[in-house]
Design a protein around this nucleic acid. Structure first.
Length: 272
DNA sequence: ATGGCCATCGCGGATGGA
């Protein structure tokens, strides 16, 4: 079972690239962030013709998330229950590769709970948007505590807008205490790890200076001046099944790319 | 480096992104 996450920075602009990428990378579940459109404009038909059903949680102009999948989604939840938010940032659903297996809260290995999330940017430490980011992260964690009990096989993936440490930053000195790199943000990220989630990227040898986002400016991609802020985290029960994780830089080389690259994880059907 | 680039809204230039 392959799962992926990709911030596509407008589904309107990037739809052809997402379809091309899915044709070349037929993952089972793809989480999208930054749709930047309302639900009524989401291209369900285009994805259906490509063999994917889609669940979306859109918003005009900003944010918006979706889950594409080869098998139908069940128990779809939008945003973080218990955290009041007027932005569309989270969509969750259960998926099973075996239609005969029960979905939902089952610990059946064939059933996986997937949370696709677009974490707040935060703009600048000390700003109102940074305070919102901190509150959002607290709300996410409080909710996840119960979600992990309900769904032992859980994947949390998306655009986290946080680096784990200096290895995720092209210029650690220059970006010290800057947005995406502050101790406060990293504390929240480590708190997710402390809850039993694992960063799948770090389970494997990765190319040096592996990033998932590059600024559009200053030829940042060509110079590999980037950040690793898109992550795929798995629960304790799923960790033994993780077989691979990689960042696909190919779409970033397109003529009109998203500033983010997709991240892909592969899960074995059962624990080894 | 003051900002560079991109998408949206909407038709100029502000806002948000990261």
């Amino acid at each position: 079972m392959k799962l992926a996450t990709w911030n596509i920075n407008s589904i309107t602009v990037r739809l052809p690239q997402v379809l091309d990428w899915l044709a070349a990378n037929p993952v089972d579940v793809l989480a999208l962030q930054e749709l930047k459109l309302t639900d009524d404009k989401f291209p369900h038909d285009a994805f259906a013709q490509a063999g994917y059903s889609s669940q979306c949680f859109g918003q005009k102009t900003y944010n918006g998330v979706a889950l594409l999948s080869r098998t139908p989604a069940s128990a779809v939840v939008k945003n973080i229950p218990g955290f009041d938010d007027d932005m569309a940032r989270v969509i969750s659903a259960s998926f099973t590769l075996d239609p005969a297996a029960p979905a939902g809260g089952s610990s059946n290995p064939a059933s996986v709970r997937v949370i696709g999330a677009y974490f707040p940017n935060g703009q600048e430490p000390g700003s109102d948007k940074f305070e919102y980011k901190m509150a959002w992260l607290s709300g996410l964690r409080a909710w996840l505590r119960t979600e992990l009990q309900t769904y032992p096989n859980l994947v949390l993936m998306g655009d986290f807008n946080i680096t784990f440490d200096d290895a995720d930053v092209w210029d650690p000195e220059g970006m010290r205490d800057q947005i995406h790199c502050t101790d406060e943000e990293r504390y929240h990220l480590q708190a997710l790890i402390a809850m039993g989630l694992t960063d799948t990227h770090r389970l494997f040898a990765q190319p040096p200076k592996s990033y998932s986002w590059w600024d559009y400016r200053d030829m940042a991609f060509r110079r590999n001046r980037g950040l690793r802020i898109d992550h795929i985290l798995v629960s304790h029960a799923l960790k033994p099944r993780v077989q691979a994780c990689h960042i696909d830089k190919t779409p970033r080389k397109n003529e009109r790319p998203s500033d983010h690259a997709p991240v892909v994880v592969e899960l074995a059907p059962n624990a080894a």
